[in-house]
Write a protein that binds this DNA or RNA. Sequence first.
DNA 1: ATGGCAGGTACGACCTGA
Length: 261
Amino acid sequence: MPMRLATWNVNSLKVRLPQLLGWLQTNPVQVICLQETKLVDERFPVAELAAAGYRAVFAGQPTYNGVAILWRTDTGWEARDVTVGNPLFPDEQQRLISATLGELRVTCAYVPNGQAVDSDKYRYKLRWLDALVQWLRDGLAAQPRLVVAGDYNVAPEDRDVHDPAAWAGQVLCSDPERERFRALLALGLHDAFRMFDQPAGSYSWWDYRQLGYQKNKGLRIDHLLVADVLAPAVRACRIDRAPRKLEKPSDHAPVIVELDG
DNA sequence: ATGGCAGGTACGACCTGA
């Protein structure tokens, strides 16, 4: 039976919970990774999600960041080997959580934004990505059935950018960031979205300002990377723009991958 | 060249995001 896994930067789970619950009703994915929950763990909506048929593991902090992995209760899965953060990169910012669900190892990542090339935040982003590559290399060897889902804050190629000339060298598009993304692929991970023909102008994020969505001035920065051993099972991958059209949307759209088995 | 929109914190701006 097909299995669906999604990733969505919700930009505040408190604000977006009704939209998430609505989306899960029409898109009953087995697993969804969330970023930018912006909730301390005490406020995580465990009961509301349970009522909607989902369980969750999560790692939050006040105001910023925060990640979670949700899975359908009717799968019968228990989350195993839950890991918060990267043991190779001690970090107060809650940007990474991993769990084994059924036969799948799932990592949910909220990669730092980087703010501006040559800023401290940018250097932190590159170090963070270097450490992720290093950690996933070992992780893949131990648990090859890996999916790394999240907001990478990297547009891997110019075709992932609405205006490549304007964005050239800027944060999210700079060569050092793209090199790190390619280093992830070189571990034996595949960008599920690019395993298929896709429409030109496919993006997962649009600026709230200047009618960014209406003009499709976007970037594709949310990705689902699947390991070599899983790649033959990938049936489809798409971005769902529907939630971006709602009132008070997240600036990101969910990305969904469908796997056999 | 700049700011524009949104969320959080906390009630007045400021930080961060992408």
